[in-house]
Design a protein around this nucleic acid. Structure first.
Lengths: 187, 187
DNA sequence: TTCATTTCTTGCCATTTGGCAATTCCTTCA
DNA sequence: TGAAGGAATTGCCAAATGGCAAGAAATGAA
């Protein structure tokens, strides 16, 4: 769990012993490429920390499934809406390659939040950061065209270069056809 | 401060006395329509709770100012990037009408977070909710065209109907010209 | 109320993005 | 290793959105 350990340490100043105790509440889960972590219509029950690999978060909209988001190595992820509002998830969450997660039940998270104020701080910071990332994405959509969004996204992480172009197209909010033309034009 | 009081109560289960103490750290600030709350290039120092009125968050991009977001009555708002990273703000924040804020210094927030675990929980929930809202906006951009975004936005709050169309256009990520045509077509 | 300024609308045309179908290219798995 | 199915590209054309400029409408200050 070194990766998770380091990640938490990078976010908060926590006692070694407390951290050890908290880590005991995580479980490792391995997912083969293309297998589902969560299926649309089911209830999200866990938070995931991605040790390696990545997740594709797909969104069902008028009969087809679009990639809404990609979560990668060293990130926390879950369907927070499903957990908070106890509603079935709108998402299909799927491994984009062989992936290792550290998972923790949402009730356990809640308990740890109460038990360890520093963990509550950790939670706050995680969501603050998630918010900033989402706003960044939003501003990109508001102020850039597809080509600019593509170039910006490409810079951000090399893993994005490994996902199928059709998923990337969804992520960018354009059709695979358009993305293909974009790439041709740029090259 | 009834509004703020009620808002906090709606988010967390807090002792009356603690809440009273916490509220003492907020200050009331009145802003006339069109006056600035924060100017681009300055450092954000406060969190705002909007008692009445609303804020336009503008973003300077290649020499003109675009409305990135609108924050309304009963919402918390600040430039979190500026506060967290201690960098000058990229935003101009301006009152869209006569507005009353309850403000609190970011250092005070930090102190209260540490002092009152329940307040840390409040902070976490605020940002969880902000995240969910941002993601919702993001999905709209990914999966809807301008017309659909317009219709969706119009449903959400009647106050949005009170902002100038050019700001609304920015918010929707289109030009005022296009918005005007959209509206004509729909009517 | 009037004038000046800003916002909004509209016409004309350009650019961006999409839809569909045919073809090619890759994967994968038997 | 080769056949099958999905992914990516491309051509042709359509729809959505933008740019610019002119005029109409709304707003605000004196």
């Amino acid at each position: 769990m070194t990766k998770l350990y380091d990640f938490i340490k990078s976010q908060i100043n926590i006692d070694e012993s407390e951290l050890e105790t908290i880590l005991l509440n995580f479980n490792e889960r391995k997912i083969k490429k293309d297998r589902f972590v969560l299926k649309h219509g089911h209830f999200a029950t866990d938070y995931y920390f991605i040790k390696s690999g990545g997740l594709r978060i797909n969104f069902d909209i008028n009969n087809n499934s679009k990639t809404a988001w990609i979560a990668l190595e060293n990130e926390f992820f879950t369907d927070l809406t499903s957990i908070k509002n106890k509603v079935p998830s709108r998402y299909n969450i799927q491994a984009i390659e062989d992936t290792i997660l550290f998972t923790i039940k949402s009730e356990t998270m809640e308990r740890l939040y109460k038990e360890y104020p520093i963990w509550q701080q950790f939670g706050r910071q995680i969501w603050e950061n998630a918010f900033l990332k989402a706003i960044d994405g939003l501003l990109n959509f508001q102020n850039m065209n597809a080509e600019e969004r593509y170039l910006t996204t490409m810079q951000q992480t090399e893993l994005l270069q490994r996902i199928p172009l059709k998923d990337l197209a969804d992520f960018l909010g354009i059709t695979p056809t358009s993305l293909s033309r974009l790439r041709k034009k740029i090259k």
